[in-house]
Every structure is written in C-alpha cells, then in structure tokens.
C-alpha cells in the first residue's frame, strides 16, 4: 500500500485530485477548513493506493505528498516554492505551472543562481511563491527586464513567467525582440485565453466566439482578429530557439509539460538558445466553469486552436 498526506489547511477544494485518482480514493470532506473551503480527504482503502502521485501532480496548491508501498516518499513538495499559500482561485492551474517550473529548477540544481521575473496579471505575486531572487516587472516588460538581468549576470538563470495579456498583448514587442535577439532566457507563457486579474476581459488568445466581459457576444474575429498562436509566431523567427507548448489540464499533460520546461532550462544553462514554453491553463472563475469542466474545455476547445508539442528546436539538436 502507498500513503498520501493531504494538508487540509492548504486545500482550496478544487477537487482536481479527486478526478486525478485512478481508483477514486479521494473525496470531499463534510466540513470546511479554516479558510472556509470544502477540503478533500483520503476516504478509500489505503491498500488500494499505489503511490502513483497523480493526485499530487494535479494539486495546484502543494497540498498533497505521497509515499509508495515501500515507504519511500514519491512526491515531495519542492523547495523551489515558498510555503506561502497562493492567492490563485480554486482549480486555477497557475499553481501547478509554478510547481513544475520550480521542480525543474530544483532538479537541475539551479535554484541558487536563478532570478525570476514576475509579470502583471494574475501571477503578479509570483515573486511571493518562487523561492528564488525575483523581479516584479511592469506590464509586458518582463523579457526586457530579463534581458538586462541576463546580460548583466550571464552566470544566472533568468526566467520570466507571463500570462497572455502581459506577454501577447501589451508585451508583444518585448517578447518578439527578446526571442529575435536570442536572449539566453527562459519564458514560461501561461495561456488561459482570458484576462484573469482584471475580471475576465478578452485577450489576444481568446478563442473565436468565446464570451468574455469585453466580447459579450463572443469574440468576433472580423472586428478583433483571430487568436494569436504565440509559440508558432515566435517559431517563424530565424534565430535559433527552443519553443514548445504544453498543457496543465490533467496530470499526464502536466508531466509532459514539465519535461518541456526542463528542456528549456537546460538550453539556457548550456547557453544554447532562447527558450519558450507556452502552457495552456484554466480560468474556472472567469470562464464560469467548475475546475474539472475547465480542464475539459482546454482539451476540447483550446488544444484544437493551440496544438501541443515541441514547435521548434535549436538546429544542433533537431
């Protein structure tokens, strides 16, 4: 039998772990935790838990740790994140993307020389969560700040963490030129097709027909253009780069995306090229969907628009 430990006080009750568990061993508790969320608890038969870690992989809030049958810890919270509870809404996958980014830095032994650049938008407070030196940049300017930082101290690992409004709209110029100069930085681009922090406005990545507070009848591509596929757009540049797109909507995709992020940091650490990983994510609050429905919406609507995979590699490794 395996064992899992659920930190009740960290749980926001999104239920993603419930759906992740292949054996249905996790369910909602009757009570509320001290933050007022219906937390989850392990209610199945411990004998049936294999310690597969999918529940922990799906948890956006570092709320679950796992041990396998031999008593070995198979999922441990990363030291690349602080212990602070995130401000993200229940079920938002920002927390997952934070975690896998931090895990990659930890596993590559880079935490001590990493400098992150937080954006403006939902992840504006990312500097509170990543357990590394952090800048908080102006809206859209993270790639410029990262350029200055990396050029000043090439020995550091410099990454930006940006949402779609920040990177794709107001910061379109900064990301384009950082990529084109081949800055040896890593960009984690979180695309949830909407402005979250300001309350659900249309983003450049909003899907055709998608309703937002500034496209109340659905995005009209005649008036507002088509969604911007940022990864493909950047891949058209001649400058060598590693460009990939993953998704955070279920544990399997989270694990694949983590490999992409790891590859991206490896390219930076070896000084190979600019690296960019777009990660599709959810916005249950502004989409008006439950967390699991949000994951389905990514699968059914976003992935057809934003195909997953490695889009470009530096020539030396392709």
């Amino acid at each position: 039998m395996g064992d899992i430990h659920i930190a009740e006080e960290r749980c926001k009750g999104c239920g993603l772990c419930i759906d992740a568990c292949p054996r249905g061993l996790i369910s909602f508790a009757e009570d509320l935790n001290e933050k007022g969320y219906t937390y989850v608890e392990f209610t199945g038969d411990l004998e049936q838990c294999t310690g597969c870690t999918l529940c922990a992989t799906a948890c956006p809030d570092q709320g679950i740790e796992v041990w396998n049958k031999r008593g070995k810890q198979t999922f441990e919270n990363t030291t690349g994140l602080t212990e602070r509870m995130s401000h993200y809404c229940p079920g938002c996958t920002h927390g997952i993307i934070h975690r896998i980014t931090a895990e990659c830095l930890q596993e590559l032994g880079l935490l001590d020389r990493t400098v992150g650049v937080a954006p403006v938008g939902c992840s504006v407070l990312a500097y509170e969560y990543f357990n590394v030196d952090m800048f908080e940049a102006a809206h859209g300017r993270a790639p410029a700040v990262a350029t200055g930082a990396k050029r000043a101290r090439p020995e550091c690992i410099v990454f930006t963490y940006q949402g779609d409004g920040d990177l794709c709209s107001i910061g379109g110029n900064e990301i384009l030129h950082a990529a084109n100069r081949g800055e040896k930085i890593t960009v984690i681009f979180v695309n949830n097709a909407i402005y979250g922090m300001t309350g659900g406005q249309m983003a450049p990545t909003t899907l055709p027909g998608q309703r937002t507070s500034t496209s109340p009848d659905g995005r009209d591509i005649e008036a507002t253009g088509h969604p911007i596929n940022m990864a493909e757009l950047l891949a058209t540049l001649s400058t060598p780069a590693y460009i990939a797109r993953g998704s955070s909507h279920d544990p399997q995709h989270v694990l694949k995306t983590k490999k992409m992020i790891k590859k991206a940091f490896e390219h930076q650490a070896s000084g190979t090229c600019f690296s960019f990983v777009e990660v599709l994510s959810t916005c249950p609050t502004n989409w008006g969907l439950a967390p699991q429905e949000s994951g389905d919406w990514v699968r059914d609507h976003m992935i057809p628009q934003y195909p997953l995979g490695v889009i470009k590699q530096p020539e030396s490794v392709s």
Binding site: V115, A137, A138, A144, V145, T147, A149, R153, N173, H177
Partner: peptide
C-alpha cells in the same frame, strides 16, 4: 526594440 524596452533592460541590469 524601443525606449520602453531599453529602460526596462536598465531595470534588469541595475537590479543585478
């Protein structure tokens, strides 16, 4: 690419 970017690059380097 612009003065907007150059001053932010300065912010990055100065912060280091």
């Amino acid at each position: 690419e612009s003065e907007v970017a150059s001053i932010n690059m300065v912010m990055g380097a100065a912060g280091m």
